[in-house]
Nucleic acid binder design. Structure first.
Length: 446
RNA sequence: GCCGCUGUAGCUCAGUUGGUCAGAGCAUCCGGCUGUUAACCGGACGGUCAUCGGUUCGAAUCCGAUCAGCGGCGCCA
């Protein structure tokens, strides 16, 4: 490709500003061809940039001959720079069009592999190109707002953002979902290859970091080798986690409630057009109100059984149960006091030791669990007991047990699935639609 | 880990009981059209029917294995 000269001292108008009537008259546009069709004397070229799409008419009589030829020849996704006059015209999608006075193709695209006939598999194989689509762009803008809102909320509460390693050697969510890594094939320790695995959660590191900073949060990928093939699972997902010293479960739940309301508020402020593009029913988001309902696990069991399920104490809620519970809700709902067969770091309830001081938050409309959190075991002896109870070996948690020996304190925290949250806010039918390059058990490319 | 499904042209698919079954639409290319809304009209290009093996006079079609992928369950965020 021969690179054309591209001036760096020219002001270009974002398409969104034209569509919102903020700009009139002659403009310079740059972007990519979204759709195109031409006749002998008039070409209709729809241009997109990150802010919107607008129709551009290129008439043989109004531009240089070569510009007209190029406008007719350039395929979808060709990059272009053009001059033209903004005209309100009902025949144009969006109500405005550009009557071009010049039309320059910066790069002629090859035939774009994604056309109107699409399948899931093809779009996933071509995700590197599908990221240009209007729905992807909308979802990713909302995602960006959600990430920022999460950070802002906790920073405003004087929490400190910190980072934990992704390579670790200790499991905190059960060993069956660990990704093992050949960390260093050359090095052998005790006669074995030196291995590591990818972090399932920052939990253990958070509890170590908390003793210095007290109130902390992180945004990081977590990795789980779950063989899950559902609309809610990824093997690499973005995990927003919070941990706070001197804090009880019910206090953390109140913070979380405020966080969810804040995130929704920010998306409504900044991403209305993206929500519309995705076909989201915005009133559903506007009706989310705190305080959220709170139910104990045993109450949920009773309620589900009254709805026709057949559950006993200790049973887990599957997707069907969660859906039955949440599909008619307007706001998320908390479930607390789960049975103690959960992570070993959760603290049993002193007044009811068969259950834990913990909570999940389920999103409405059947989206299900987006938060898991609770109070942690803070007594060193009880922690060793709990590790044994889960069939694990305390010896492999050396440093984690060590942090309990020096001024242990009550503390609570939670993990929020950011991708699930975005999926819910977008009203997406699959979590893969809201992350740029989704990772599942069967896909690590592109 | 369990259940189900798919693989035919660049894309989306049709192809009946095994026998003119190598097909369509879209895309691309060529030609036509001054208002199109992923336009329309005419023409051209395009396939080792996922791979390997088997059954058969004959396989896209039946059988087996392999590979790739999709949907769902369980578990989780």
């Amino acid at each position: 490709m021969k690179y054309p000269e591209f001036p760096d001292d020219v002001t270009y108008t974002p398409i969104g500003e034209i569509l919102s009537s903020r700009v009139k008259g002659n403009v310079k546009l740059r972007g990519w061809i979204y759709r195109t069709r031409s006749s002998g004397k008039l070409a209709f070229v729809i241009i997109r940039d990150s802010t919107g799409i607008i129709q551009c008419t290129v008439s043989k009589n109004n531009v240089d001959k070569s510009d007209f030829v190029n406008a007719g020849k350039a395929l979808v996704e060709s990059s272009v720079v053009l001059d033209g006059l903004v005209v309100a015209d009902e025949r144009a999608p969006g109500g405005f069009e550009i009557r071009a006075t010049s039309f320059n193709v910066v790069h002629f695209a090859e035939a774009f592999p994604i056309t109107k006939d699409q399948s899931d598999e093809h779009l996933l194989n071509n995700r590197h190109l599908w990221l240009r689509s209007r729905n992807m762009v909308s979802a990713l803008k909302i995602r960006s707002t959600v990430f920022k809102a999460f950070r802002d909320y906790w920073q405003n509460l004087d929490y400190t953002e910190i980072q934990s390693p992704s390579f670790t050697t200790s499991a905190c969510e059960g060993g069956s979902t660990l990704f093992n890594v050949h960390y260093d094939d050359e090095t052998e320790k005790s006669g074995q290859k030196f291995y590591a695995h990818l972090s399932q959660s920052w939990q253990l590191y958070a509890e170590a970091s908390m003793f210095g900073l007290e109130n902390i949060f992180t945004v990081a990928p977590s990795f789980r080798a779950e063989k899950s093939r559902t609309r809610r699972h990824l093997t690499e997902f973005w995990h927003a986690e919070v941990e706070a010293a001197w804090t009880h479960n019910h206090q953390m739940m109140e913070f979380e409630e405020g966080m969810i309301v804040y995130i929704i508020k920010k998306v409504l402020e900044e991403n209305r057009s993206e929500l519309e593009q995705l076909g989201r029913d915005i009133s559903v988001l506007e009706n989310i109100k705190a305080p959220f309902d709170k139910m104990k696990y045993e109450e949920v069991i009773d309620k589900l059984n009254s709805m026709g399920f057949d559950l006993a104490w200790g049973d887990d809620f599957g997707y069907k149960e969660e859906k039955a519970l949440t599909q008619n809700l307007k706001s998320p709902v908390y479930i607390t006091n789960f049975p103690r067969e959960k992570g070993f770091y959760h603290r049993p309830d002193p007044s009811d030791p068969k259950s834990l001081v913990c909570h999940d938050l389920l999103a409405p409309e059947g989206y299900g669990e987006i938060i898991g959190g609770g109070e942690r075991v803070w007594s060193p002896d009880e922690l060793v007991e709990r590790i044994r109870e889960e069939g694990l070996e305390p010896e492999s948690y050396g440093w984690y047990l060590d942090i309990r020996k020096f001024g242990s304190v009550p503390h609570s925290g939670f993990g929020l699935g950011l991708d699930r949250t975005v999926s819910w806010i977008c009203g997406s039918d699959h979590i893969k639609h809201v992350i740029p390059f989704p990772r599942t058990m069967r896909r690590t490319t592109p």
